[in-house]
Design a protein around this nucleic acid. Structure first.
Length: 414
RNA sequence: GUGGGUGUCGUCAAGCGGCCAAAGACCCUGGGUUGUGGCUCCAGUAUUCGAGAGUUCGAAUCUCUCCACCCACCCCA
């Protein structure tokens, strides 16, 4: 027996309707905001992620699905933004009308240890806005995520926002933070020590309780923002207030991806266990340039579809299951079976979901099957009906049955 | 990479050294008038208890090893 690879999940037919429902809602929400769908390959040159996501990140250092083929190193996308940015540059979309607004749904791959809400292959909805430096864009991106989550029926989620500054103020903050930590550096856990030089801000969200003791009173990024970044952050908060979106300023949000600047935000759900982030995003004003395009501002988010599904379930949201069958055609005898095939095709041409027995089972079994399918009507025909050009039309809800000529039966069903 | 938990039919689950060629429920399949569902009745469906080794007269039940899955750390969606 060959099993599914660890960290992946089949989306079975009995649950795929939930995915379709979410995808449809997400598409609708995005299109109402004027966003267009972007589709990029599932793999890219490894270098794109090294540059885009950042060499110091865990993702690049140990989680990528990288493979060599024809002497090129390729990597399955670990997140959605880099590919869109690459294509945006490659197709010179920056030369078109700005801001450019895109959305996507994509699988992502990260070699991680499995956990609730964490898989090696997972799926993200995401959006990106290119070409706006204004916080209005950030507010819109957050608002879109908020609308979508609320519209799906998600409850009890929280929005955390932070500003991690631009390279200018971040450098200053970084220095202040290192100065603060340095006296106790040897007391911190190994990973935190390792991050001291590469990414000291990540030390702040260390889960090690001992570490946290030494981090009390650590300088906050928000106190080190330059004028530009500070007013921007205030502006964002005003916009969110105006939109009636509740949020909490959380200086702890750092984001694991290197490319973020200024705004960083997370939508947190308390229903997910340890993996509480359902949606994470922010601004990345230097990413496009970093990857080789003209300096272009960007904001966006990524949202975990599996996590969203878990949350929805926990919120008791019932995703409507589409009807499987309008009419079931039960037939006995080979002549009637052939006729059933024809009737089925005709009904489908008229837009009905018509299902015909394809097992040649007994009548009882066919009706049982029809019942399970939730058919509202059942057409029964055997040699007798065939000879007379009629059909037994059974109303499955009321258990009533009448004999009608075929055309009359069709009218009745409509 | 590091902890903790679990592993009996398709699913949920009883059993915790002999009466277990493994209860029960659900699902599934077939049947109860040669042609009628949802209710009901009957029948069928694990030579086997994640795998292997050991202890024992005797193991699903005890021991060991391995494997798989889950949860948590880490990280993130």
């Amino acid at each position: 027996m060959i099993n599914i690879p660890k960290g992946t999940k089949d989306i079975l037919p009995q649950e795929s309707y939930k995915w379709q429902w979410l995808e449809e809602r997400f598409r609708q929400t995005c299109e109402r905001y004027g966003y267009k769908e972007f589709r990029t390959p599932i793999f890219e040159h490894t270098e794109l992620f090294q540059r885009g996501v950042g060499e110091t990140t865990d993702i690049v250092q140990k989680e990528m699905y990288t493979f060599e083929i024809a002497e090129r190193s390729l990597t399955l996308k670990p997140e959605g933004t880099a590919g869109v940015v690459r294509s945006f540059i490659e197709n010179k979309l920056y030369a078109g009308q700005l801001p450019a607004k895109y959305y996507y749904a994509t699988p992502c791959y990260r070699y991680e240890k499995m956990q609730k809400g964490r898989q090696r292959e997972f799926h993200q909805f995401g959006i990106e806005v290119f070409g706006s430096q204004s916080m209005l864009a950030d507010a819109e991106v957050i608002s879109l995520a908020n609308d979508f989550l609320t519209g799906c029926g998600v409850e009890g989620f929280k929005l955390h926002i932070n500003s991690i500054g631009c390279p200018k103020c971040r450098a200053e903050y970084r220095k202040a933070l290192q100065d603060f930590i340095r006296p106790n550096l040897d007391k911190l856990c190994e990973t935190s020590q390792g991050r001291f030089e590469t990414n000291p801000m990540r030390i702040l969200d260390s889960k090690d309780p001992d570490d946290q003791k030494y981090l009390v009173g650590a300088p906050k990024i928000t106190d080190y923002l330059c004028d530009d970044c500070r007013t921007a952050f205030e502006e964002l908060q005003r916009d969110l207030d105006a939109l009636g979106i509740e949020y909490e300023v959380d200086p702890g949000i750092v984001r694991g991806l290197d490319y973020y600047t200024k705004t960083a935000f997370e939508f947190i759900s308390d229903k997910l266990g340890a993996q509480s982030t359902i949606c994470g995003g922010g601004r990345y004003d230097n990413l496009v340039e970093e990857i080789g395009g003209p300096s272009t501002a960007g904001v966006g988010f990524g949202m975990g579809i599996e996590r969203l599904l878990i949350t929805l379930e926990a919120c008791g949201v019932e995703i409507p299951q589409p009807d499987e069958c309008d009419v079931f055609i039960a037939a006995m005898g080979s002549a009637a079976q052939t006729k059933a095939l024809q009737l089925g095709a005709e009904l489908r041409r008229a837009g009905k979901k018509a299902i015909v027995d394809v097992c040649g089972r007994g009548l009882k079994a066919q009706l049982k099957y029809a019942d399970r399918l939730g058919a509202s009507w059942c057409m029964v025909l055997g040699d007798d009906e065939l000879a007379r050009g009629v059909v037994q039309l059974r109303d499955m809800k009321n258990s009533t049955q009448t004999e009608l000529p075929v055309e009359k039966a069709f009218e009745e069903i409509n």
